[in-house]
Design a protein around this nucleic acid. Structure first.
Lengths: 344, 344
DNA sequence: GGACAGAAGGCATACGTATACGCATAATAT
DNA sequence: ATATTATGCGTATACGTATGCCTTCTGTCC
């Protein structure tokens, strides 16, 4: 098996050995029907023998298709060095698998929303399309998204699905999920349910979750109280602070629906400090089902999003644009996972 | 700013507008010193104006350098869909940042060790080099690594640093870290310290940690007992099972050093089930300092590896090979993080 | 038996950039 | 004033593949 460390073999080398022309090699390896079975098998055998692989740069240059997708993470306002939001990591796992299944390469990078990340991916042919991931102020997003659309760049964003969105968006059914959480808490007999998380147009996903909660309450004839909503971004600290603020307001509450698990975990810490027992005094429901959610004490009831479906849908939505197909459904159902933080 | 959605601008377009030749544009944008300052600035201005970016495929094809690094994760034997080992995620964060700082693209993918992943990256010019990450049976690794070396592929592996390794390796000082853990537990007066984790040549990192622990004990005149070592791979379940096995053996122990935090967390669950109190009956030290480590009750004492340094070193080691520099230091110190699981 | 269609593959070329080389002009040396 | 060198840039070309178009051959049908 002495493979001489000569220069890498090219399709010309294969062609010579197979007694055909270079284009035939290219066609054979791409499975073109205009190459006879016999020829193709001969070529494939030789290619394998030489350990040949198609030069990705040449191939992409010629075909103007990189078969690569870029995944951009936008960090939370608190970019704590190598601390990544666990939810997005789970998403990453799902996306990589989906890309692998389709033979796509996946490029990943972390960005600050306010940087000029869009330029790098605009015409460089690095990737055929982008997947944008990350909570973040949507109003900041907008101008960047408009530029992408203007340039004809293919992209999908994970977020709140809404008609008015710029570009393609895929996301969980946040309203429905909020309703699930609300119904669950109401069934437990809780009536004064607080919401920890932003609820304005800057964070539409959170706003949707809140809206779902309100819908559930209204269905029981309970009017949502503004005093029971506290702003919070998705971070443990923010959850802690929000719960403290809630307590400080002096309004009664017997349940919390947190816009994310990290917020919920921070809130549980604040409740414990205040001598409040979970779930006895306050039942709590989070969102995301991050790994840590089952490790807290008590373990956290939460909403589990369909990660596998999300990866599939995101990748599919990008490819749909590349291939000029219409893109399919864009909303995914979520599921309630009941644990002890909301036990009877 | 009506940018016509015409075809993407090329270096020829820039050249035409600047009244120079295409090669001059290329040189100017790459900062070659053989272009006058005035010309370069003119070119840069036009390029920015047109929102031009270098075509990555063409550039890579011509220069035979992709300025891309591929990060390959090898999954644990239990590939639980989108559940990724948190430690590697933290590493990912560090590596992406390092790549961004150097203007490198990062390609990532998950692999099963036993697949033919090496072929895809061998001659395809997808990436200039590989970073290999993942616990896994080293004996399985070997044949793949040898093939990579044979092909002249640039790569670095994260793992146990040892003279006999195939190819470049970067890793924490696992022996030293094991010693840290051991010294800490000994200082607390614990004398019967168990180790949960494999300790053979299949998992050299774990073996190193165990060896460090043994060294600490021997320094105090305590002979390590084989009965106090239980095999475990890095997973919560494995830790749970290992601790159960340890208890079932009926040997006395007053401390546990777990080869990873996941193992430690599983072990704590088993201890709780057995009615053993942490840290009163059993002090416990983990390894990795994953986010969940501070959320357990009691919070877990653990060893924190230098993630930032790891990212830097890994990327640097790959580039060193690409640029034919000798590669620098390959071992990183680790730090003990004391929490309540090993309180007095 | 000639026209025609389909199969299989060759020929030429384009994708967009980077670099070896060469050639002026200007600056400096002798 | 001439020989020498550096500066700044143009000319030509190569990187390795994919694809439009054309050719050849075989088989088929009236």
């Amino acid at each position: 098996m002495g493979r001489q460390p000569s220069s890498k073999p090219t399709s010309f080398d294969i062609a010579y050995l197979a007694g055909v022309s270079q284009p035939t090699v290219s066609r054979a390896l791409r499975g073109s029907r205009s190459v006879s079975l016999a020829t193709r098998q001969r070529i494939e055998a030789i290619a394998r023998e030489l350990n040949y692989s198609v030069d990705k740069n040449a191939s992409s240059l010629r075909s103007q298709r990189s078969n690569t997708i870029a995944l951009l993470f936008f960090e939370d306002p608190t970019p704590d060095e190598s601390n990544i939001n666990p939810f997005f990591l789970s998403m990453l796992g799902s996306i990589t698998r989906q890309c692998a299944a389709r033979g796509l390469d996946l490029l990943i990078s972390f960005q600050k929303m306010e940087d000029d990340w869009h330029v790098r991916y605009q015409d460089s042919h690095r990737a055929d399309g982008l997947i944008l991931l990350g909570y973040g102020d949507y109003t900041l997003y907008k101008s960047r998204l408009e530029q992408l659309v203007g340039h004809g760049t293919h992209f999908v964003r994970w977020g709140s699905v809404d008609e008015g969105n710029i570009g393609a968006t895929v996301g969980s059914d946040n309203v429905g999920a909020g309703r699930l959480a609300g119904d669950h808490l109401l069934e437990l007999g809780r009536r004064r349910i607080a919401f920890l998380g932003h609820a304005d147009e800057h964070y539409p996903e959170f706003a949707d979750r809140y809206q779902g909660l309100c819908a559930a309450m209204l269905a029981q004839g309970i009017a949502p109280e503004p005093a029971l909503q506290v702003d919070a971004l998705t971070a443990e600290d923010a959850g802690h602070a929000a719960a403290q603020a809630l307590i400080a307001r002096g309004v009664a509450f017997d349940a919390i629906f947190a816009a994310s698990d990290l917020i919920a975990i921070g809130a549980m810490r604040a409740l414990a400090e205040a001598g409040l027992n979970v779930p006895h005094d306050v039942a709590i429901v989070g969102f995301d089902d991050i790994p840590a959610a089952s490790l807290t004490s008590p373990p956290l009831t939460t909403i589990m999003q369909d990660m596998k479906g999300a990866g599939e849908l995101l990748v599919d939505a990008v490819l749909a644009q590349v291939e000029e197909r219409p893109l399919p459904r864009t909303t995914l159902p979520a599921r309630l996972v009941v644990r002890r933080s909301s036990a009877g």
